[in-house]
Design a protein around this nucleic acid. Structure first.
Lengths: 190, 190
DNA sequence: GGGTGCATGTAATGGGTTACATGATTCT
DNA sequence: AGAATCATGTAACCCATTACATGCACCC
């Protein structure tokens, strides 16, 4: 009978399960942890924490600091941890991923193949960069959290990133070869 | 100086570049063409076409039918085709893909590994199914649109789908093996 | 003096889905 | 009799980003 509202509040609960944090901390932490498959803006985080507190799923404690603004530290309550577990048990809701790149490529016949080639090249660069980041993150995690029981789960998400980016690099290279074949015949006949 | 607003209106223009269509037709066509990487609801399509018509990018012609409601056929104007081409030339805007599966997996330590295993199994099934669909679509496209100059572009989008799903299948199988290792030690010691 | 980091938050705006509303025809 | 298909469209609602607003401290 419970409502298991949007994914965002549950993501916040999940991050707070790693320890008490402020909204600001959450934003920083995201980029070092779930940043490659999730993002939240302050416009979601601050009002989200407020609502979670009103629902009794998190507790707020204010820490005074000199010079800097107060820190509002939020921590999971027992009810909050329970809520998080319940949500984790629910099946994952499938959504069609929207890819602007594929959309542009699908209609690539409307413009020169060089345009599509540029889009695919940019995509290739992105994934080559991502592969480096995943490698660095994997090393850092194994070094800094060797004893953490959650480590294997974190590594699994990085592993998906690697699998995905490696596949995309392969696709990009194949696709670039084909796009170049469209371009070159015209050049030859000039 | 032109505004190249949201992606949705441009997606509509792209689909109309394949020929005149009604809002209803567009919805049907999406599932057979760009459905694996794009979706639009009627709540976006009908108001979207209206706005495109007001901007002079599409033209509306009403076709009367007996028994059934009128069909509103939209077709690209010259300005509309120009607008589409301009948008295709703009670089693809990158957005962090949001994955609820990875989010749940990242916090998998909060629940039993069996939960995570179920999520990954469902994901595996999804991609095995997708691979079949991509195979069938590739065959059908090559058969029905052998002479279409846009065919290579359509095949490229399907190829990305295959690369992606194959990589996901591989990741799922590896991840399932590891999740099973977490489960079995407990059973042995029972 | 100016940029960056710390730290909070709101308001405006945009993007999108779902449910609702209508109504005839055709298939089971 | 009832469900599905054809065909249009609106309204309510949810989700999310961006820009704005504030203000001190520290470093160059």
């Amino acid at each position: 009978m419970k409502k298991h509202g949007g994914t965002t509040p549950n993501a916040l609960l999940g991050l707070l399960s790693l320890g008490p944090m402020s909204g600001y901390d959450i934003r920083q932490l995201i980029s070092q942890s779930i940043g490659h498959f999730w993002s939240e803006s302050y416009g979601q985080i601050y009002p989200g924490l407020k609502r979670l507190a009103a629902a009794g799923l998190v507790e707020k404690k204010t820490e005074r600091q000199k010079g800097k603004p107060d820190r509002h530290l939020y921590s999971l309550t027992v009810a909050g941890r329970e809520h998080l577990r319940d949500w984790l048990k629910l099946p994952v809701v499938y959504e069609v991923p929207r890819s602007e790149l594929l959309l542009k490529l699908f209609f690539g016949g409307q413009v020169s193949p060089a345009i599509s080639r540029e889009h695919v090249e940019a995509y290739l660069e992105r994934h080559l960069g991502a592969l480096k980041v995943y490698g660095a993150m994997t090393k850092a995690l194994k070094r800094d959290h060797a004893d953490d029981p959650a480590l294997p789960y974190w590594l699994m998400t990085l592993s998906m990133g690697r699998h995905n980016s490696a596949a995309m690099v392969k696709w990009c290279r194949e696709t670039l070869k084909e796009l170049e074949r469209f371009e070159s015949p015209k050049k030859r006949r000039q």
